[in-house]
Amino acid sequence: MKIVFMGTPEFAAAHLKEIVESGNKVAGVFSQPDRPKGRGQKVEPTPVKTVATNYGIPVFQPEKINSDEGFEKLSELSPDIIVVVAFGKLLKSGVINLPTIGCFNVHASLLPKYRGAAPIQRAIENGETKTGITIFKIDEGMDTGAIALKRELEIHPSDSFGSLYLKLAELGKKTLVHFLERVKEGRLELAPQDGIPSFAPKIQPEDLVISDLSDAAKVVNKIRAYDPQPGARVSVEGRISKVFGASLKCRNEGKGIVGEIVKIDDRGMIVSCGAENVIISLVQFPGKKPMRPKDALSGRLISEGIILGG
Rank of each mutant, 00 (worst) to 15 (best):
L248H: 08
E125Y: 06
R187E: 15
A118D: 02
Q61C: 08
V278F: 06
K202W: 04
G7N: 02
I196G: 00
A118G: 06
S272C: 05
I302K: 01
V258M: 06
S247I: 05
P192Q: 10
E18F: 03
E72P: 00
F136H: 14
P157T: 11
S93E: 13
L213D: 04
P99T: 07
K89S: 13
T134V: 09
P228Y: 10
S235K: 10
P230N: 08
R292G: 08
L301T: 04
G56C: 09
V84A: 08
R182V: 04
Q32D: 05
K137H: 06
G305V: 08
K202D: 00
F30V: 05
R251D: 04
A191L: 15
Q229F: 14
K49E: 09
S109Y: 06
R233V: 13
V48L: 10
A52M: 09
K249M: 14
A191N: 15
L16Q: 01
F161A: 03
E276D: 14
E304W: 07
V85W: 03
K167E: 14
I147Y: 09
I203V: 15
K222P: 00
P119S: 11
S211C: 05
I270R: 11
E260T: 10
I82P: 01
N221D: 11
E181L: 09
G274T: 12
A246Y: 03
R151P: 01
F136A: 06
L98D: 07
E18M: 15
K150R: 14
M1Y: 00
T8P: 04
K263S: 12
G231T: 03
V177I: 09
C273T: 04
